[in-house]
Amino acid sequence: MIESAGITIDDSISPVEKIIINLIDLLAHPIPKTMRLILTCLTIVISANLAGQQLRGKINYTRTNPISSIIWVTATDINKPKSKPLSVRSDSLGYFNLFVNKSSEYQLSISGVFEPDTTFNIKLKKDSTVEIKIDYPPKICPYEKTKLTGICPTGNHKDNVIPIVYGLVAGPKSFFRKVKKGKIELGGCVVTGCDPNWHCKTHDRRF
């Protein structure tokens, strides 16, 4: 069980996984052939449904009057930043279930309509089930930690990191030349009070 600001992660063995362990334990003992066949088939069926890594959780909406109940959960393989992200939408109660095909470290992004994104890293082991609980939007803005440093949380580096500028932009030609060259990113006119200050071009991550 891991807990941090507004996030609880439980990577302990799930009840279904305990059932499989008990079934395998039974098969190791002398039992009638018919019963052995039934238990073997049952173990195969349950194991097939658990193949791969499963991430399931509950999003606790912290606003009294939410703008929208549409919240997306996106997982990106940190070791393969150019790979296609996996996304799923939570239901009306905030529950979600996401399956990934390989064990790796993933960047998890929680995003809603007109709300700041929440991102954090999570490791998914082979054939594991991880349960998480998330307070969203975060009560403490996650971007405050890196506002002054400009250090990308993915890899802890400052190279290939550019600032994000918000609002109706007006400035000298040199400013727009930097935008065109990819040295400054325009964040748009909509601000939430908790917005990313930097963009890591290496990992395509705002923070």
Rank of each mutant, 00 (worst) to 15 (best):
V130R: 00
P81I: 14
I59W: 01
K33Q: 15
K82F: 12
P142W: 00
I67F: 15
L124N: 01
G52M: 03
V169T: 11
S111C: 04
P15R: 03
N121F: 00
K145L: 08
K180N: 04
N156T: 07
N79W: 06
I44L: 11
G171H: 02
T40H: 09
E185D: 09
F120T: 07
T8C: 07
N121R: 04
A75Q: 04
I19N: 02
K84H: 09
P30A: 05
N121C: 05
S128G: 04
V16W: 01
I20R: 11
R56F: 14
F114K: 11
Q53C: 12
L168E: 13
L98I: 12
D204L: 10
N160K: 11
S4F: 04
L168A: 14
I19Y: 05
N22A: 13
N101K: 09
Y61P: 00
P116S: 10
V16C: 02
I184G: 06
D77I: 08
T34S: 14
N22W: 09
V169S: 11
A48M: 10
P196K: 03
G171W: 02
S128M: 02
R205T: 11
P15A: 04
K158D: 06
G155N: 03
T154N: 11
S111K: 15
G167P: 06
P66H: 01
L148T: 05
T192S: 13
V179H: 02
D11H: 07
V190R: 07
I134P: 00
D117W: 01
V45Q: 10
L39A: 11
A170I: 09
M35Y: 04
S104A: 15
K180I: 10
T74R: 09
L186A: 06
D204N: 13
G94Q: 06
I2K: 10
Q54T: 07
P116I: 13
T192Y: 06
